[in-house]
């Protein structure tokens, strides 16, 4: 058992348990806590899967941003009795059963697929150079540079021949997402601004 396997096992368990705890716990604040655990473990998994940039972003945005936002929201709205809003046990049981069913289904689906064969078939059919699976382990990290290039419209991971028309980068989606974020910020600010209640 090498280190990778150890970390993988560790992160796997903490992520799954964190998620379960989110489901199980009744207090919103606790939920937020467990969520942090879960998301953080996931970020670890990302690192293990050579997606260090994504993992970093996960930590930054989710753990550092979104969850803080959530906690703020909890605090803004948790006035007394409303922190805990009980759900009826029947509902919980029903949801649990359906959830299990769903889980079983998804697992059954994914284990039924021959991932190796599918991958090679895709590679044959698409007649492209398969990625070598290992990114350049340069000083700038595994994925930082390729992702940055992609977001600027280039695909260095596909080789020179393929960097023509078909495999363009993600410049346009990147821009769209940027604008989207801006719009969302404005919208959120608009929605969340304090209004005088009509009734009051």
């Amino acid at each position: 058992m090498n280190g990778e396997a150890v970390f993988f096992t560790l992160f796997t368990v903490s992520a799954c348990l964190g998620a379960l705890a989110v489901v199980v716990s009744q207090n919103v604040v606790r939920m937020a806590f467990w969520l942090i655990i879960c998301l953080g473990s996931t970020a670890g998994l990302f690192f293990l899967a050579d997606a260090d940039f994504v993992g970093a972003v996960q930590l930054l945005i989710y753990v550092g941003g979104t969850l803080v936002l959530l906690v703020f929201a909890v605090m803004l709205t948790s006035s007394g009795p409303y922190v805990k809003i009980e759900t009826s046990p029947g509902e919980v049981i029903l949801a649990g059963m359906i959830g299990l069913l769903f889980l079983f289904m998804v697992i059954a689906a994914q284990t039924g697929i021959d991932w190796e064969g599918t991958g090679s078939r895709i590679a044959e059919a698409s007649e492209i150079d398969p990625p070598d699976g290992t990114f350049d382990t340069g000083a700038e990290g595994h994925t930082l540079r390729p992702i940055g290039m992609s977001l600027l419209g280039l695909r260095p991971d596909r080789g020179a021949a393929a960097s023509g028309t078909l495999f363009t980068g993600y410049l346009l989606p990147f821009e769209i997402v940027s604008v989207h974020l801006l719009v969302v910020l404005v919208g959120a600010a608009y929605l969340a601004r304090a209004k005088r209640r009509r009734e009051a």
Binding site: T12, L20, C38, L45, G96, G99, L100, L103, V106
Partner: peptide, 11 residues
């Protein structure tokens, strides 16, 4: 892991 997280989220 993805499936477990997804299911937990749904539940």
């Amino acid at each position: 892991i993805g499936a477990v997280l997804f299911t937990c989220g749904v539940v």
